[in-house]
Structures are given as structure tokens and as C-alpha cells.
Design a protein around this nucleic acid. Structure first.
Lengths: 341, 341
DNA sequence: CTGAAAGCGCTAACAC
DNA sequence: GTGTTAGCGCTTTCAG
């Protein structure tokens, strides 16, 4: 492989559109049209050109087209982490749908960390994406302002904030919390605890849970926050704190299945009967919840559907039709009842 | 927000380098230098220009620079999935290090699926990345050929193939398998099973395990393959298949902690004593393994170190120094002994 | 339906 | 240290 020395160019002299044009015996412009507006070229010419492209192995440089066309056919996705199973599902689906619609997706990981996000957003926007997918709304005001000023379609997912910049596809986290509360109440519970990571969305769920509970006159005996991200270890540790309260039956809502799993596991170690003395509901419906023994009740979300929906909104907007219609799409969720409740 | 109609431009008329130059009272070239070679400009001029950039909110369009400079300051990462905890760790670290070194990372998800990878690689290469990070080597020959022809630095991670295209940072999976075999033998086991997902790397580990075992004269009583990816469900199911063989003590090597967890969990349900009748070693050292009850013995890998190392190799190469030296970096692994063995 | 000319935003190369 | 000129690869516009 040829390798650069010092500041010399790194990419090899690659084929230009002119090379293809020469090989096919047409003008460069015709090649460009074959690539971007195939219906404006005769089938025969198209065939000739395609053959040349294939034979030479030509790959157009999207960068070169950029300043001129002002559309990059690229959308950028920004997420704080890719380790989260839900994010992974959303991104995978989004990526696939967008690619299918003729757009590239570039994924940037980072943020939720004041100084960093602005730098991150700056480099992302420097690529002049045609649109943006961002996870939730835990970013700094400055960074958020950049998104507004970018003046391109933006889809927020995961969260449905009250006032999205543009479009939002996600879950009403407060509603999730209150649904779990209602579920617990319907099952006849009367003592409750919340175990939640300290991130915006998880806290919103906890608030929804607490509010519905207090409105129903029920008592929250423990409201425990742990630093994000959620871990199994934190769940186990929290059970030990909870132990003193478990003389009477208690139902706990966890902001993640990892916490729920930790709780249930440590309950097993400490000999606390589940669900008799301790009822647990997680969030996310990871495989771990479904396949644990005992299987853990959880709130199930459809990441794939979320990703696909986000892509559909964007593609419609980018296509120029139906602009501005779907400002906020609420994705459904459901509580999957299992052995821990 | 302004939104396009039909085929109209999508991005707003944004600031150009000339606007900044005018505002700062210098030539465009000077602005360019402030951005790309700060040491060639007087501090005073730099200050003036930076002020103008800041005030106007200028963000350079990397696309425009691309055809000229032939270096995009972008490296592309290609992985088959982001749901895998190890990949996520590697990417996060890689991403951070590269950004720190002045490069953007764009992540593309997909592949391991003959027809698709070529399309994927084509769109990735069309962005003219300065370098590539690819996961392992499960791609089609055509796609692989594209990487070779791209003639840019390529780091393969995860796997260490025998003949990397360029550089490789990862694990010797065969060695991992044989280390686990040696460990089991040292613990006095004499009946063994392998439970593995059918992907290249996992199969290599299984082969390493089996070979060391048979060389040591030991018997493999069950060699079970499941379709990738590994799941907890598959682990639980496999224990039921194994049940008939568990009249005597058996040690099982799983290609993933998820499988191991499934095995151990179902063993609990079926009343098989662990580790007395069933010893289990997983792979990946996920939090799940460490925090389960009983805690699961596993092979621990450092994804963060892998990502950082890959970035370091690339940055050195891209910087023009130390070209071609580190062709293959073997990352260490270790067996973390826990309660299941 | 196809081609020629002009120019996108930026940066190498060469003056000054 | 800074400015000027030319041109990257591609597409827009406008002519044929």
C-alpha cells in the first residue's frame, strides 16, 4: 500500500467523472446525470455510462459535489452512547431506512457534557448534513442553539420534549412512570420505592411515577437516585439499602432493567422472596429481563419502530412533501408482566 | 425553520470563508491558515480572525476543502453491529482518541452479508476517508478487495487475521480458546463441552479450545453451534440439551457471556449444582457475568484499550511517522475466575 | 436528450 | 506573514 510521507496527500489519485466520460464517449455532465437524474438520459447512454463506471470502478466523491449542490445526501446522528440496547436498535433501523432512501448516515458518539457537545456539534455540522437525528435533550443550551441555527430538519428521538426544535419521535416518559404506578396500584400494592439513574429521561419517568402515586394517596418509602448510567452493581447495592424497609411488602420501579436485575439478584442472595415481599418492574425490556429467573416485569419499547418512524418523518420532509406535519410522534410502550410482580 | 420545496437547496446560504475574511479585514487565505496552520499566522491576526469566526458563527464546510486537499480529516469505522458491548467500548474509545487527534469518525453499521457489504463499503469510500477502522474479517472478498484498492491506512480490530490488509489490533481468538482449555485442565476437569455462536471469531475460539483439549487427550462430549448472535435464550435452551450428559461433571466453554448466563440460569432452574456438576466459562466479561449470582468466570478483554491502541496506530501513520511498523498488535486477555468454575 | 461554460467554497503554490 | 492566482471534482445553468 502506498502511504503518505509527512503532509503529502493521503488518498491516491482516483478516478474523476471526466475519466468515466472519456471511457464512455460522452460529456462529464452526462455521467453526472446518469448518477443523479437517470430519467433524463436515454437508456442506451445510461447503459454505456454504467458499463464504464462498473469497469473502471468509479466512485463519485461526494465532497466535491457538496459546495455546489448544497445537499450532501448525508444525515448525521448524534447519541451520547451506543452501549444502550435501545439506542442501538433505533440507530440500526434508522440507518437502514435512510440508506434505503438514498441517504448516508454518519453516527457521532458523545455529548451530554457541556463543553464537549459544542465541539462535537460543530464538527458534525461542518459536514453539512441534510438533516439530524439527535438523542433526547440532555445537551447544553449552546449546543442546542447550534442545532436551531443549522436550520435543517432535526428529529429528536427517545425523548419527546415539550417543545422540540422541529420533530420528535419517542416516548412520553412521564406517562411511562404513571402507567407503572397505575399498574402497581391495580395489583393492590401500597408501599413503593423508586430506583432511578440521574438522567433527564429516567428522572422524568420517576416523577411521573411519584406523582401518580401521591395523587392516589400512596406512600413512596424510598426515592433513590444513582449516577447515570445504570448498572447491575448499583441495583444490588440498593437492595441492601432497601432491606430494612422490606419488613412489609414493597413495589419498586427501576429506571432500567439492569437495576431491576441487580435488585432481584441480590434479593435472591438475601433471601427476600420475590414477588411476595419485593415486587420489581424494570424498564427497557432487555433480553435479560425476559430470560432471567425469575423473569422480570418491564416496560417494553420498540426501538426498531422508533428508528424507522424517525427515518420516515425525515425522508418525507427531505422529499419536500408533507412538510412540518408530524411534529411529535408518540411511540407506544407496554408493560410486560412477568414473575417479579 | 426554512425548509426546502421539492428539489431546492436544503442547507441555508451559510457563511463562507470570504465573509469571515471581510469581517476580519484579511484575505480568505489567512482565515484558512488560522484554521489549518495556526503557527503560520501572527498571534494578532489570529486573534482578529478568531473573533470574527466566533462572532459570525462560521463553520467551515469540510466538503469544499476535500477535492483540493485530498484529505478529509475523517476516518470511517465499519462494524457489523453496535449492539455488542465490546464493539461499543472500542468505538467509544477510538472515537474519542481520533477526535482528540483532530479527526472525525463516522460510523457505519452493516455488512457481514455478501451483497450488502459492497454497497456499504462503496458509500463509505465515497466519503474519501483518510483511513478506515473495520471490525474483524467476515466480509465478502469483493468488499475486502475494495479496501485494498482504496489504498488508505486500514486498521482491523477485534480479530487478528493472519494476513491483515494493513494493520490489526485485536485478540488471538485461537489462543483464547486454548487458554480456557488449559485453565479447565489445570482445575482437574476431564469432560468438556463447547457452546458457540457461528461467527468466524467465535468458531476460532472454539477450535482453539477443542484442539488443546484433544491434544491433551481430553474428550469433548458436546460441540454445539447456535446461529449468531449469541442470546441468553440460546444458552438456556442448550442446557436442556446438555442435561442428559450431566450425570458426571462437565466443564463448558461458551462463546459469549450471554450464553454462559443462560446456561447458569437454567442450571439453577433444573437444579444442576454449579460448579459441582457444571462448570462454566464465558467470554467478554460483561457486567452481567461479574454481577450474576453465582458470578460467572469469563475471559476479560479491554475494549477501551483496543480502541485507543487502534487510534494511536492510525494517528501515527496519518502523521507520517513510524509508517508500517505496527502491523499486528495483540491485545492481552485474561481469564477472570469466579464462582462458576 | 446532450453538451459547454461558469462557478461552488476552499486551499496549494507561488508571489510579495 | 500575508495576499494572489489558479484550480480541485462536480453540478448548475443555459444553449444546442
Amino acid at each position: 500500500m502506498s502511504v503518505p510521507v509527512g503532509d503529502r496527500p493521503i488518498l491516491p489519485a482516483s478516478l474523476k467523472i471526466a475519466d468515466v466520460a472519456a471511457a464512455a464517449g460522452v460529456a462529464p455532465m452526462t455521467v453526472s446525470r446518469v448518477l443523479n437524474a437517470p430519467d433524463r438520459v436515454t437508456p442506451e447512454t445510461t447503459a454505456k455510462v454504467r458499463e464504464a463506471i462498473e469497469r473502471l470502478g468509479y466512485v463519485p466523491s461526494i465532497g466535491a459535489a457538496l459546495p455546489q449542490s448544497r445537499r450532501s445526501r448525508t444525515v448525521a446522528a448524534i447519541v451520547p452512547t451506543i452501549a444502550h440496547p435501545m439506542f442501538a436498535g433505533v440507530l440500526q433501523a434508522f440507518s437502514g431506512s435512510m440508506r434505503h432512501g438514498g441517504y448516508r448516515v454518519t453516527l457521532s458518539v458523545g455529548g451530554y457534557n457541556d463543553d464537549d457537545d459544542e465541539a462535537l456539534f460543530r464538527t458534525v455540522l461542518a459536514q453539512k448534513p441534510d438533516a439530524l437525528l439527535v438523542a433526547g435533550s440532555g445537551y447544553s443550551p449552546g449546543a442546542w442553539q447550534m442545532l436551531i441555527e443549522a436550520a435543517i430538519p432535526v428529529v429528536e428521538f427517545w425523548d419527546i420534549s415539550a417543545r422540540p426544535i422541529d420533530m420528535a419521535v419517542g416516548f412520553d416518559h412521564a406517562k411511562v412512570g404513571s402507567a407503572v404506578a397505575a399498574y402497581f396500584l391495580a395489583k393492590g400494592h401500597d408501599r413503593f420505592a423508586v430506583l432511578t439513574a440521574s438522567d433527564t429521561r429516567a428522572l422524568t419517568r420517576a416523577r411521573g411515577f411519584t406523582e401518580t402515586m401521591t395523587q392516589g394517596g400512596a406512600s413512596i418509602v424510598l426515592d433513590r437516585r444513582i449516577p447515570a448510567p445504570s448498572t447491575i452493581a448499583a441495583g444490588r447495592e440498593c437492595l441492601r439499602d432497601l432491606l430494612a424497609l422490606l419488613d412489609r411488602r414493597c413495589a419498586v420501579f427501576c429506571s432500567s432493567d439492569l437495576l431491576a436485575f441487580g435488585l432481584v439478584t441480590e434479593a435472591g442472595v438475601q433471601g427476600v422472596p420475590v414477588p411476595e415481599h419485593l415486587a420489581v418492574c424494570g424498564f427497557g425490556d432487555f433480553e435479560l429481563a425476559a430470560m432471567n429467573e425469575p423473569a422480570i416485569t418491564s416496560v417494553s419499547l420498540d426501538g426498531t419502530a422508533t428508528g424507522r418512524t424517525a427515518a420516515a418523518c425525515l425522508l418525507r420532509r427531505l422529499g419536500g412533501e408533507g412538510r412540518r406535519d408530524p411534529d411529535r410522534v408518540q411511540m407506544p410502550f407496554r408493560i410486560v408482566e412477568r414473575a417479579t410482580t
